[in-house]
Amino acid sequence: MASQGTKRSYEQMETDGERQNATEIRASVGKMIDGIGRFYIQMCTELKLSDYEGRLIQNSLTIERMVLSAFDERRNKYLEEHPSAGKDPKKTGGPIYKRVDRKWMRELVLYDKEEIRRIWRQANNGDDATAGLTHMMIWHSNLNDTTYQRTRALVRTGMDPRMCSLMQGSTLPRRSGAAGAAVKGVGTMVMELIRMIKRGINDRNFWRGENGRKTRSAYERMCNILKGKFQTAAQRAMMDQVRESRNPGNAEIEDLIFLARSALILRGSVAHKSCLPACVYGPAVASGYDFEKEGYSLVGIDPFKLLQNSQVYSLIRPNENPAHKSQLVWMACNSAAFEDLRVLSFIRGTKVSPRGKLSTRGVQIASNENMDAMESSTLELRSRYWAIRTRSGGNTNQQRASAGQISVQPAFSVQRNLPFDKPTIMAAFTGNTEGRTSDMRAEIIRMMEGAKPEEMSFQGRGVFELSDERAANPIVPSFDMSNEGSYFFGDNAEEYDN
């Protein structure tokens, strides 16, 4: 993207840094990872977990959730003011799984939030270390993106479920800051804005008074975040219109849905970061690795190297396929839920299948599930090659597409044709070009129609051997075009429920 120079890199967003050079960025990201790792080690000690239990991804998720809940100030305040039966607002906890007599047992633990905050700050040299908290939120978000298709949420806001490739980060909490905003897809931002506008339509006082002023500035800020994701002048001009509207209503909703559809071809720039579970960072720190000293990046080879040398386990339900569970977590670790499966298959070195073909449910185990038949197995999170994460949407291309997802959002900077089903997408653009945004709409449609099938995206960008740390010898991959490109292809993934 041309304006790259004016933006802070995501590592800076990730670490609240002012302008830093590459070495400083690597050190501050490393410091953040160190903090998460030290916190995780301490929690495993508190909970008396064995090494194996500490490497269980379900335990990692519970521990991450506990610290996120302990620092969720708004919710904590709300819980104190609106006490609900049987919930102690000062405590947080969740299921911890232990191996007892050759069987997995679930144990519900409860801790004072104050105590968890103390352990977290102690692991982070006394700081609140917001960057580390956001990092864990993005890992949870990436896992949700890989596990669930947001059909219901899309339909509720009037969008087409086939636009799911635009929904990265749709389950990120509001408090995820600049680093969170960077990884949100165009569809996620559109959905947040539509929800806001709908509230304004239904509630006369939404934009009024002292609160209304705050609401208005939040609305304009979200519009600017979305505008910054678009790469064409016409899309940005249309966002200006939406932002400046005196009284946002149905016309703005129409414009936003139009823009979301246009992003299936004229893709937005959305950041991709490899955020790993805390149970990967903990053992690495415990083994003596100093992330701050060595430096770390979320968008280069580092996460690949770390996963190459990590042992992570997962509980497996009786009829689940461990290899499929591994694929789910591998995609989440690489922030690749909406990437082209052919690119992923090449990088991973084994075939990556669409969601609907995987015999696996989510990673988390519900409290009512029976533990008797639970097994555990090693997650295979290694890769054959590594590639640089991208934040450009890439230019655009036609490809055989599917009944489910009709476009992709690249996660890796790797040369390819970008699949999208042009006739299906263009069919949504018939007729409606009147109104105050008509010239911009016409211009956007013209650009979409001009998108050429034979153009290559990320020209000359390749993948790298894991021994090639400096990215000196790019390998331009070859793809098996007979395979499906979309992950949520004609899909039956479970729906995400809060």
Results as ranks from 00 to 15, higher is better:
R156V: 01
Y78L: 02
S407D: 10
A337M: 06
G212R: 12
Q235Y: 09
S345K: 07
S60Y: 09
W207M: 07
L256P: 13
Y313T: 14
V476H: 12
V463L: 00
L381H: 14
I41A: 00
E244V: 08
D34K: 04
M66G: 06
F338N: 14
M222L: 13
S287Q: 05
T6N: 03
G126Q: 08
I96S: 06
R216V: 06
H324S: 01
L79P: 12
E369A: 04
L143E: 14
R204C: 01
S335G: 00
P453N: 15
R436G: 14
R389Y: 11
R348C: 12
I365R: 05
G288I: 10
K229N: 12
G126S: 02
L172C: 06
R416P: 08
M440E: 12
G349D: 08
E53Q: 03
R152V: 06
R55V: 03
Q4Y: 00
L79V: 00
G5M: 09
Q399D: 13
F258W: 10
P173T: 12
G126Y: 08
V242Q: 07
M440T: 05
A442E: 08
A442N: 02
S217R: 06
M447C: 09
I119T: 13
F479I: 02
S28F: 03
H82G: 13
Y313A: 03
G431D: 07
W330Q: 06
R199H: 05
G132K: 13
G431Y: 05
N417T: 01
T146G: 09
N247D: 13
S69D: 10
C223T: 15
V242E: 14
C275Y: 08
C333V: 00
P283K: 00
S274Y: 12
K98N: 06
V186A: 04
Y52M: 09
Q241A: 08
A271V: 15
R461D: 12
V155W: 13
G180I: 10
L133F: 08
F291P: 12
G212N: 04
F39T: 04
V67R: 10
R391A: 15
I41E: 15
A181N: 00
I445L: 14
L418W: 10
E320F: 10
N224I: 14
G180W: 07
N334H: 02
K227H: 11
M105S: 14
N492T: 02
K77L: 02
